[in-house]
Amino acid sequence: MELSDLHIPYVVPTLLLAAALLCKAPTLVRAWRDADVRATSLLLALATCVFISVTPVNIHRINAITGVPNIAAPWTYSLLTAFCATCLTMITRWREAPSTARARKMRRVYMIYTGIIAGLWVTFLLADVPDERIYDLDTHYANTPFMREHIVLYLVAHLVSALVAASMIGTWFSQVESRWLKAGLVCLQVGYASGLVFDGAKIAAISGRWSGTDWDFLSTNVAPPFALLDAVLVAVGFIIPQAGPALHQWFSDRREYRRLYPLWRVLRVIEPSSAQARVSRWAPLDLRLLQREQHIHDAMLRLAPFFDAESYTDAFEAGQARHNATTARGVAGAMAICSAIEAFREGAPRDASEQPALIGPDITEHIHVISDCMRRRPRLLGWNATPTESITHAC
């Protein structure tokens, strides 16, 4: 195969959609009973199959493997029609709460588009299309009995689905509050607008053939890029509302996990009060973050009898002379924890009568700031210097 056969404009979106489908596969396995998860997976699968099928080299392969010239046409148009039906039902799922009426409406959509797919195959089987046409099938056979109806049928089905979907989104958009859902709907609207341009170009080119005018370039050159843009944006539009919040949460957890690392590393010398379940480094990030937070808070509880509130106050007051209150609390907290760890190692708790039950809200409520200070100045962990002396070098 030559590089020119790869058709990069087709390959790139195909790989992106296939990657999205693979990423969705674990969710489908875990929650296959969820109708929304199944519908999203079906939509991604159909979009991927459409892109694979419309690649010129694959159109020829389908025809060659089956031995039927142009059979790739009903195959590809059937996938596209099924994709359109799935898009309409997905929008219906988003807009309406589960109900008998919603289920009946979605069944009606599937029944109508199933009938259209059956019509595509019947008209193709009745048509006489012996010459393989990869790039200009629509215009070349625009006047061929039954193939003409075949072409018009898939274009009308696609056009109607785009208009109906765009109308549904337009009347619903102002009621949407989720930024992720809004972003997805914007992609859908732009995608459907591109689809309408595709339909318009195809219909104009075919109408030109009917009237004896050569507008084939609209079908072969203008329409395909808009078809690609349509399918990509529509698929992405359905992915964003589901993948967006999940990715945002993952990045947030990742940032939190890394931010707490310096403090967790210092507190590792404190054995947990009870045996903890082993969590692999390959475990889900949210589980590893939860364990890290639990270890930190458990260590704080064990350090409470060794915490010197007076030293913390002195360090905080000294820190305010050079930093804002938040940074000063972080530095003072870091010094107080280091001091408490030293006392813990020496087995020398403070006077219990002067200690609170917990290590103190100024410490527990600012663990992120404390961890930041430990990351920025490792020398802060020197336990020989007093907090007041070390505060001048911190952060």
Rank of each mutant, 00 (worst) to 15 (best):
T66I: 06
A18Q: 12
T100H: 09
I71Y: 04
R33P: 02
L28G: 05
V37F: 03
V11F: 04
T86C: 13
R61A: 08
I8R: 14
A73I: 01
H60F: 04
V54A: 09
P69F: 06
S4H: 10
L42K: 13
S41I: 04
S41D: 11
A101K: 06
Y10I: 05
M106D: 10
C23L: 12
G67C: 10
S78R: 07
K105A: 12
P98A: 09
V50R: 03
L44K: 03
T40D: 14
T89C: 08
A101R: 03
R107G: 05
T55I: 03
T40G: 08
R38Q: 12
P13H: 09
I91G: 05
R30E: 07
A64T: 05
L43M: 07
A31N: 11
V29K: 14
F83A: 02
G115T: 02
D36F: 00
L22F: 07
M106T: 14
L21R: 02
I52G: 01
C23H: 01
R38K: 15
M90K: 06
R30L: 12
F51A: 02
V37C: 10
D5S: 13
P98N: 08
T92E: 14
S41Y: 15
I62G: 04
P56E: 01
L21Q: 00
L17R: 01
D36S: 13
Y113M: 09
S53R: 07
M106A: 12
C87L: 13
S41Q: 14
F83E: 00
A82G: 12
A82M: 15
M111Q: 01
D36V: 04
V29E: 02
L79H: 01
A85S: 03
T92H: 08
